[in-house]
Simulated assay, not measured.
Amino acid sequence: MTFLRAVTLLALIWLAFDPGPAVSFAVYVLIGVQVIGWLWPRLAGRYIVWQRHAPLVLAPDEVGEVTITISYQGRLPLPYLIVTEDVPPSLSAVTRKRWVLSLRPGQRYTLRYQVQGRQRGLYWLGPLRLVIGTVIDRNEVLIGEHQPTPLTIVPHVVPLPLLELPAGLPYSQERRRLSLFDDPAQTIGVRHYRPGDSPRLIDWKTSARLGELHVRELAPVIARMTVIALEFSETAYRGRFARDDRERAVIATASLATTLINRQQAVGLCSNGYDPLTKAPIVPLLPRAEHDHLRTLLLLLGRIEPVSTGSVLTELSSGTLNLSWGSTLITVTAALDEAWLAGLTMLRRRGLYVAVILADPGPSDVLQARRYGIAAYRLDRAGGIVVDA
């Protein structure tokens, strides 16, 4: 009970025992003041309009500014207005922003604070709460927000010049060593034999002349349609560093897609992950080469969350992507097992160029995949793609 209400209660008790005009007048004044204090913030709340302006997407370590504009069009002044905004810890060191304002009729006020993208994911700014009060009594009115504002932090993109790629990755039909696959009809030279090279590429004449095994080096070409299949289930990534392995897989997928589209190659995305914004499984993105498509793809990778069970191989085997013969399929997962090898071999027999990128490979996963004719790579700690010689 507030002080003013306690005084009013005492006055009412006094009025019951001594119904004099002075006491009656005092009781009426006290009750009237409280009624005005109760109505004031409730009527003023109808004339408060606020709007939040925030970036929808931020890159890693990028700093963005959030503004909250509050307008008051009431006739009575607002003695005080308490504004509270909740911010996720991954965006700001101060998780609760708080301001106290006093607004005149027709006044407009703008509040600002900064957020920084520190970790990939979908975050919500808010809810925003406005508490309206008066000086007469503690009659505060809370105005809440029904829908916070979403903010997506996209994954980090590794610059490809920093990657250790022997034959690179499928970056369109450029005549340079930037392809996972080669054209057997066009030989551009010879080089020393490396474990995992196909015996069909051995140049026997050069090997006999030099006394060491040499293989023919082929001109890299590739189909223009590429689909990246990201495995994102909790059962596929196990161990103490399962979460880090998933994040490195996302970084590799984002880096591949960015570089491919920047080289005007159509890229699609398929995953068994979960989209928390739509509260539904990830919808496959058909291959396209526009930068708007890249933005959509990176936003999807920024929001993606793991599912408990399932495998992306199920969707790849169903043929929903309708990949044409000669298309490139790059799968990103933790490690290989018999089911994965069987699934990738079946896709390869359909006429697809298949490659696999492993976040946590076993000792023989890379060599075993190459025995089946599947190009295999592994990830380093930063999500970069390296090749085992």
Rank of each mutant, 00 (worst) to 15 (best):
342 A>K: 08
179 S>D: 10
73 Q>W: 10
102 S>L: 03
85 E>W: 08
22 A>T: 12
100 V>W: 07
156 H>G: 09
389 A>P: 15
59 A>S: 14
361 P>N: 13
121 G>D: 02
325 W>D: 10
267 V>F: 11
21 P>W: 06
342 A>G: 12
309 T>P: 09
273 G>S: 01
268 G>F: 02
26 A>H: 12
203 D>S: 03
368 Q>N: 15
369 A>D: 08
139 N>T: 12
9 L>S: 11
121 G>Q: 01
298 L>I: 07
218 L>Y: 10
199 P>L: 04
183 D>W: 01
321 L>P: 00
289 A>K: 09
214 H>E: 08
117 G>E: 02
260 L>V: 04
325 W>A: 13
331 T>N: 08
1 M>V: 05
315 E>K: 13
237 Y>D: 05
218 L>W: 08
272 N>G: 04
341 L>H: 10
18 D>R: 15
378 R>A: 09
75 R>E: 11
123 Y>S: 01
9 L>R: 12
237 Y>C: 01
101 L>V: 05
319 G>M: 01
70 I>F: 05
340 W>I: 15
316 L>A: 04
342 A>E: 13
166 P>D: 14
145 E>W: 00
237 Y>I: 08
108 R>M: 13
44 A>V: 06
200 R>F: 04
177 R>M: 15
348 R>F: 02
255 S>L: 07
333 T>K: 14
313 L>D: 06
253 T>R: 06
64 G>L: 08
290 E>Y: 10
238 R>I: 00
143 I>C: 00
210 L>N: 06
257 A>E: 04
191 R>G: 04
204 W>D: 01
241 F>G: 10
213 L>W: 05
3 F>M: 09
352 L>C: 06
146 H>L: 14
187 T>P: 08
365 D>Q: 10
177 R>V: 14
65 E>K: 08
303 R>F: 00
282 I>Q: 03
273 G>D: 01
250 V>L: 03
326 G>Y: 05
339 A>C: 07
367 L>H: 10
262 N>W: 15
353 Y>D: 12
54 A>M: 06
244 D>A: 13
196 G>P: 04
211 G>L: 07
258 T>Q: 09
143 I>A: 01
196 G>L: 10
329 L>K: 07
341 L>C: 07
48 I>N: 06
239 G>E: 06
68 I>E: 14
231 E>F: 04
235 T>R: 11
253 T>K: 02
347 L>Y: 13
38 W>H: 13
318 S>T: 02
221 V>F: 07
358 L>H: 13
289 A>N: 09
267 V>C: 11
225 M>I: 02
323 L>K: 01
232 F>V: 05
336 L>K: 04
40 W>K: 02
